[in-house]
């Protein structure tokens, strides 16, 4: 029996419920666990670097990446990830070599990649129907190969965050100060942007390109409301992302709502609660 066969058997035995007997639900559950944990960790830095718009641009560039894949007859997930990384690194490169503000540079990339995507779609009729699944995502259809890739990305992401957490926080606070401490600040930013682009690509698989930024931002923003130190910020973000993911998946299965939307709604609810708790604590 292969590894996934053992995992399905394990879930079926340990959890005596109907859902645990379905392989696709187990795959979706594992996928959402690894993805939300990774987004919880990476999201801290997205908020720290004020990169919400950057993340949005990456996710919308996926639209063009998919359109390119469909047009050229290549696996759209591959073109999506490659295009996302190119756009992510391109933004950082241009930002570092111009006097323009980050918002302006990101805005230029955002509108350009969307325009390219629309132009490609207009070239080939019927392409827009294929694109709908990328808009909303669907973690319930994740296959074993995609799940394996997601677990590999999770391991890579956690190793990266382990090695760079303190450094990235300091770079976000003051890049020159971090540089004076001997940190190669451009290198860290390029690696982070490249990795984030791949995480966004995987996030699109789960919640769609319209909502993937929320998956990064909401748990990290809620964690800021709850945490009192740089260390606890990480754990709050991970826990809130994970609970949002599992609660969203469960409610999606219960009430037959789109998984992406229910995950983000759960995360939004946590943000609301954390904001209220912060107000109470401050007063």
């Amino acid at each position: 029996m292969d590894l996934f066969g053992l995992i399905y058997k394990f879930f079926g035995t340990v959890f005596p419920f109907e859902w645990a007997q379905s392989a696709f639900v187990i795959r979706a559950l594992l996928g959402i666990i690894f993805l939300t944990l990774l987004c919880g960790a990476m999201g801290i830095m997205v908020v720290n670097f004020r990169m919400a718009f950057f993340s949005d641009t990456i996710s919308h560039s996926a639209f063009t990446g998919v359109a390119l894949g469909l047009l050229l007859g290549i696996n759209p997930w591959m073109t999506l990830a490659i295009f996302a990384v190119i756009v992510g690194l391109g933004i950082i490169r241009v930002k570092r070599h111009t006097e323009l503000s980050t918002d302006t540079v990101t805005g230029v990339f955002f509108s350009t990649v969307i325009a390219i995507g629309i132009a490609i779609i207009s070239l080939r009729k019927g392409l827009n129907r294929d694109l709908q699944s990328y808009l909303f995502g669907d973690i319930l259809t994740i296959n074993e190969m995609e799940l394996t890739a997601m677990i590999a990305l999770f391991i890579l992401g956690i190793i990266f965050i382990w090695l760079t957490y303190n450094k990235l926080l300091l770079i976000g606070l003051h890049e020159d100060l971090a540089f004076s401490k001997g940190m190669n600040t451009p290198l860290y930013q390029y690696i982070f942007a490249g990795l984030l682009a791949v995480v966004v690509a995987f996030g699109i698989r789960a919640v769609g390109l319209l909502l993937v930024t929320a998956l990064l931002i909401l748990p990290a923003a809620s964690a800021r409301n709850m945490a009192r130190s740089a260390g606890s910020l990480f754990w709050w973000s991970m826990i809130l992302a994970l609970v949002s993911g599992i609660a969203g998946l469960a409610s999606s299965l219960l009430w037959d709502v789109a998984t992406g939307a229910s995950v983000i709604l759960a995360a939004s609810l946590f943000f609301l609660i954390s904001s209220m708790l912060r107000v109470i604590r401050t007063n």
Binding site: V47, N48, R50, I161, W162, Y165, N166, K167, L169, L170, G172, L173, H174, L177, A178, K181, M183, A223, R224, N225, A227, R228, S229, A230, G231, S232, L233, F234, W235
Partner: peptide
């Protein structure tokens, strides 16, 4: 420092950022 004042970070955390190799969450 140009930072979001809501960032949960103590002065001790801030001093540890460049000093400590292992992540503060550990």
């Amino acid at each position: 420092l140009d930072f979001d004042r809501g960032l949960p970070m103590t002065a001790l955390d801030f001093l540890l950022l460049p000093l400590q190799k292992g992540p503060l969450w550990w």
